[in-house]
Nucleic acid binder design. Structure first.
Lengths: 110, 110
DNA sequence: TTGACATATAAATGAATATTGATATAATAA
DNA sequence: TTATTATATCAATATTCATTTATATGTCAA
């Protein structure tokens, strides 16, 4: 079986994974999975300094893993489903391809 | 709804994502998804210098995304399904939690 | 044993990143 | 207007990471 040309380029995926390569940012995604939060809520929950949190949020924003909505002086951050789904999809494809080829790899099966 | 305590700690996930935060390493995983490969095959496919490739493989090994099998002077690298599945699972949980809470977020629905 | 080959490790360097502290902006309240 | 609050950015430093070159290890063949 030939591997199909992947929908997401490895470079793009790596970029998104780099944004996930930090404990606080994974935490942020997990919190935002529960719904939109303003920066101050995130700061309170995570116990990060405000500039540091702001920096992490920017990193996540830049690769499209979260989105912002401004409301007065509050910034409300929310999960960007598509972005997360893209990373998820890359791993999904790897697992599926792997499962498919290991099935094939066992002679006599199927 | 309350978020369940995640099965994989954010720190561990971040560590694995860090290993994925490189174009070559994502490529390696994609190749290995098709089955075991020896280092020289990977080197030929990816066009990386031998020491650089070796370094990337070590990074992937250290976080449990690939495994090695020695055979004479050849090292055969293979995908470590569990490791990949763990990363996949973290994103999966985020997406599921998100979907669940956005459904709840729409009043009148369900 | 010698040599060739496959792979790993070490050291060095430059680039990218995290973190902090200080400051800026922008919106609201007094 | 001035003060206050929420957030972002900037500059500086420390740390981590990718890459290269050189060298080491281990295995096989002659």
């Amino acid at each position: 079986m030939k591997a199909a040309t992947p929908a997401v380029k490895s470079g793009d995926a790596a970029l998104a994974f780099r944004a996930l390569a930090d404990t606080s940012r994974v935490e942020i995604l997990r919190i935002l999975a529960g719904g939109e939060r303003c920066v101050c809520e995130l700061a309170a929950t995570l116990g990060l300094s405000q500039p540091l949190l702001s920096h992490h949020l920017r990193t996540l924003r830049e690769v499209g893993l979260v989105r912002v909505r401004k409301e007065g002086r509050w910034m409300h951050y929310a999960l960007a489903r598509e972005g997360v789904a893209e990373c998820h999809g890359v791993l999904d494809a790897v697992l599926e391809h792997h499962d498919a080829s290991t099935r094939l790899g066992r002679p006599g099966c199927c």
